[in-house]
Amino acid sequence: MSSSVQEGRVTKPHTRRRRVREIPKTRTTSQHHDRYAIEHDKKKKHHHQLPLVERTNERSIQEFASKYIPKECLVYQARGVAGSDPEGSEQQKEYRLSVYDPSTIPDTDLNQCFKLIEETSSDAYRDSSTGWSPTKKRKEMKLPDMKYLVVRREGGSEDDEEEGGDDVVGFMSFMITYEDGKEVVYCYEVHLSPSVQGQGLGKRLMLMLLEIGRRVGMEKAMLTVFRSNAVAQRLYAALGFETDEYSPRPRRLRNGTVKEPDYRIMSIRLDGGPYV
């Protein structure tokens, strides 16, 4: 009987198999491209499924600036300013605006922006129910969705050198966000050094805020202003801002005294434009 047949069972003779080493498959350029295209399509689909506010804030600051901020608006030629040269012609000053978010703004610029807030508004904060807290303000300035327009004076001067060579003379911070369920562009801060006030820079920054909000597709532009800041309120009113429906109202105390809120929320519908 063959050794392969035992008790009616057929068994295969034991043979040693030779192991063949498999060559690992490599991904072709075409496969790499297809994988990238699929991932790109997934991200694109995810991006378009997000609500407008989240979709906008997901963009890098470079993408945001390219899409929503007119490039020509990043240079501002100041209107005629006080003073003249020996020949009697008006001085012309030019300013350059840079766009940042908290992850890209240089520390020196952020510190200078904070100093402008401290210089121009810390007293108003101290006199208000809010109070002045440098720590809270710095924390607010670093909120992830905050965006900055930082103003620099083009060209140096002897005055700049005496002031330490710092060329940041103003800024505006804003956010694409929700307010009472509405999609808005909210102005958090707008401050100018006293040396550049009266040249139309404040108005230009506010008009840029409106234009950015319009281009993004926001319903309103909003801001909060201290009632003690009459100059700012006049500027905002001249641009069309009005007291918002959610602005705090006067409160009548138990003793009959009417307590006025120390701040005012103002807004404007973005159904016009272009603004710059």
Rank of each mutant, 00 (worst) to 15 (best):
S2L: 11
S3N: 13
S3A: 13
V5F: 07
R9V: 14
V10D: 12
T11L: 07
T11H: 08
K12L: 14
T15F: 11
R19T: 00
E22K: 01
R27Q: 03
Q31L: 03
H33N: 11
I38H: 13
E39C: 10
H47K: 12
L52W: 05
R55P: 02
R59T: 09
S66I: 03
K67I: 06
C73S: 08
C73L: 04
L74G: 02
Y76C: 05
Y76M: 03
G80S: 03
E94Q: 12
E94F: 11
Y95E: 05
P102M: 02
T104D: 06
T104R: 04
I105C: 05
I105L: 04
D109I: 10
D109P: 03
L110G: 09
L116E: 07
I117W: 06
I117N: 08
E118W: 08
E118T: 06
D123A: 15
G131N: 09
W132C: 01
S133L: 07
P134W: 11
P134V: 04
R138G: 12
E140H: 07
R153L: 12
E158T: 11
D159H: 12
E162W: 11
F174P: 01
G181T: 08
Y186E: 11
H191Q: 15
H191P: 06
K203H: 14
L209D: 04
L210G: 03
G217S: 01
K220C: 03
M222W: 04
L223P: 00
L223M: 05
V225N: 02
R227Q: 06
V231F: 09
L235H: 04
L235K: 03
A237G: 06
G240D: 00
E242D: 00
T243N: 05
E245M: 09
P248S: 01
P250N: 05
R252T: 14
R252E: 12
N255W: 13
K259S: 11
I265M: 15
R269Q: 15
P274L: 06
